[in-house]
Design a binder for these strands. Sequence first.
DNA 1: TATTGTTATACTCTATAACTATA
DNA 2: TATAGTTATAGAGTATAACAATA
Lengths: 166, 166
Amino acid sequence: MMTETAELAPDPVSDRVLRSFAGYALKRASNAVQADLVRTLEPFGLRMITFTALLLIVENPDLSQTQLAGVLAVERSNLVTIVDELEQAGWIARGQSPRDRRSHALRATSAGERLCTAARRAVEAHEARLFSSIGADGKAMLVNALGLVENAGNKLPVGANSGAAR
Amino acid sequence: MMTETAELAPDPVSDRVLRSFAGYALKRASNAVQADLVRTLEPFGLRMITFTALLLIVENPDLSQTQLAGVLAVERSNLVTIVDELEQAGWIARGQSPRDRRSHALRATSAGERLCTAARRAVEAHEARLFSSIGADGKAMLVNALGLVENAGNKLPVGANSGAAR
DNA sequence: TATTGTTATACTCTATAACTATA
DNA sequence: TATAGTTATAGAGTATAACAATA
């Protein structure tokens, strides 16, 4: 049964304190953008991480898995599944490195290159859609500000917090 | 054994295409800020989600779990663990609602209120630390831009993507 | 019949340890 | 001895279905 809406005021839950935190706005915006990006990539059979991996392989042919894991900030062990996924779909191939028989030389197939181009166009359209409301300079300023914030976050390693009770 | 660094140029992996996407900058900044926030809350015995829940309970006494799940954008089933965690630490109590014997009236204990105040101060310091590099107006503009982007993302529901091959 | 809190379950992401084959 | 790729596994976070008590 529905709850009574007229009798007692619905008393909307206040989240104003939460909204006073910029980190909260950052997380909400990031979530919304990622969600739209997932929807954008879905029709291509790509996840965010497989799209990113494919893009990097196309741009950097004969990349090794360790190198790729490094740029993607993913554990090498977890990269295996990602590369498997792309290889089984026929979009990339694990070639053999001429210098080191342990390492794989990742290279996109022509199907993979075509898919990458198409997906990239869709992602660019997604970006245009989501960031159009703030204009070109707004976007540039936003990206610049985000870079500064990211650096500030990564600068302070572990112990820099104020003392706290429990 | 180390790989040869002089003989062959290390050939740094190019991620410039990736960096041309604003959504990527957004995700990186968000991750960095969330990571620092986790470190900030750890000494208080709080996770991000339990801190947020506690804050909302303090600000909205006698909140029900369904209401809280709504603001937090969390499934009711998953909220159970969160509320358990706060209750077992003695920071909130599941009171009984006078009107509906099914629902709980969540209320912070005095220990919970003290903890919330202290944690909130630490989070405010964390915010000041991370956003100081862009100044007060920069922060205001950032929050404003993020709100616009979030709205743009949430506006377009499901089918609004450009057609895509597979 | 619908809703609140709850349990159980599953699926994705991520992190760690250990193995193999090469170096 | 160290590194590349791999497997197995475990932990978070999140989503769905079903149940008992109550409305």
